[in-house]
């Protein structure tokens, strides 16, 4: 039972990250009906921006030394004599990095929001009123542009970034087994859940959320009711970019920085389809379910099956419910 809990928690932690990635795809789809195939690359940009502001800039000669490593006397004294890889050591290492982590997150949020805004204004808005298919194809083209641009700006060098939260090990006894978790993963999960919950509440209870829902329902009617549809488009892209920046930063802390980060978006597309392209709740449940299924399959059947089993489940769901678990059925007037 203890082991079951261990792997279930591991799965939930992965699922939360999937949900955070998926939320950007759903936001853009809800507002614009465009499936953004380039979302993974938007996340990759977020990761690179976090790297730029948390590693490259603090490492420059002209940058203040406290930005690269904050070392007040009390911190240095506390670190002295601590054994290697001790939990307290991990927390103090993180404290030392706090200025550049904050700088990195703020920088990534702003820079990625600007990128999202530029994409929306220069590539998407001119296509408003055109076929949705054309807009989707633009996002496919965007993949090449963004991966090429990232190679030019940051090169293809692999590198590593500081954890957003202290990565101290967390151990506790449950059902006779020792459960072991990584502190940073727990905080990442918490961040993902808070962001996800915040977006759901925003869509349900704020004016902007109502505008997004109205636009998703019918753009022409929303227009006629005085809703600025272009603004809704713009907000959706900014929302996707900023959540993408956080998802990118978290992915970079787990996997390091490399151009392969862009590929994560594709695996999450299946989860989005399973949950329903226009349903935040559906996508959240699908992400959690896939995360847990992956961890359980890995535990019981091994890695060769772990990538297959959850996606067989996705297929099964789509066969029974083509619009996903909570997706809206499209009704077309003939």
């Amino acid at each position: 039972m203890g082991q079951l809990t261990q792997f279930a928690i591991n799965g939930l932690m992965s699922g939360a990250i999937y949900a955070l990635i998926a939320v950007g795809i759903v936001s853009v789809y809800k507002a614009t009906k465009v499936v953004n195939f380039a979302h993974g690359y938007l996340i990759m940009f977020g990761a690179y921006f976090y790297y730029t502001f948390a590693v490259i800039i603090p490492g420059q000669e002209w940058a203040p030394s406290w930005l690269a490593s904050w070392e007040p006397v009390w911190l240095v004294e506390m670190k002295e004599g601590l054994p290697m890889f001790s939990p307290m050591g991990a927390v103090l290492d993180w404290v030392q990095n706090v200025p550049r982590i904050i700088f990195g997150i703020i920088g990534a949020l702003i820079a990625n929001a600007i990128v999202g805004r530029i994409i929306e204004r220069t590539l998407m808005r001119p296509l408003m009123g055109q076929s949705i298919f054309a807009m989707i194809m633009v996002t496919v083209g965007l993949i090449s542009i963004m991966s090429g641009a990232a190679s030019i700006i940051w090169t293809a060098d692999a590198d590593f970034v500081p954890h957003i939260a202290p990565n101290a090990p967390v151990r506790f006894e449950l059902f006779g087994s020792t459960i072991f978790l990584f502190g940073a993963d727990l905080v990442n999960m918490l961040i993902a859940l808070i962001i996800f919950g915040g977006i759901v509440l925003m869509v349900r209870y704020t004016k902007s959320g109502v505008a997004i829902r109205a636009t998703a329902e019918d753009q022409s009617t929303a227009y006629s009711m005085g809703i600025s549809v272009p603004k809704v488009f713009s907000r959706a892209w900014v929302l996707a970019s900023t959540t993408g920046a956080i998802a990118g930063a978290i992915l970079a802390t787990r996997n390091g920085i490399s151009p392969s980060l862009g590929l994560f978006g594709f695996s999450v597309l299946a989860i989005v389809l399973m949950g329903g392209l226009d349903s935040y709740i559906g996508v959240f449940l699908a992400a959690m379910a896939v995360g847990v299924m992956e961890a359980m399959t890995q535990w019981q059947l091994g890695g060769d099956w772990a990538e297959i089993v959850p996606y067989v489940a996705v297929l099964a769901v789509l066969l029974i419910r083509p619009h996903g678990l909570f997706g809206s059925k499209e009704v077309e007037r003939i």
């Binding site: 082991q3 591991n10 994560f264 890995q298 535990w299 091994g302």
Partner: peptide, 21 residues
């Protein structure tokens, strides 16, 4: 232990748990 992982973005806690076991 024979443990296959994803080539990128592997679920590290799960693999480490299995290694510990």
């Amino acid at each position: 232990l024979e443990e296959a992982t994803k080539p990128q973005g592997a679920d590290i806690p799960t693999h480490v748990t299995k290694l510990a076991q």
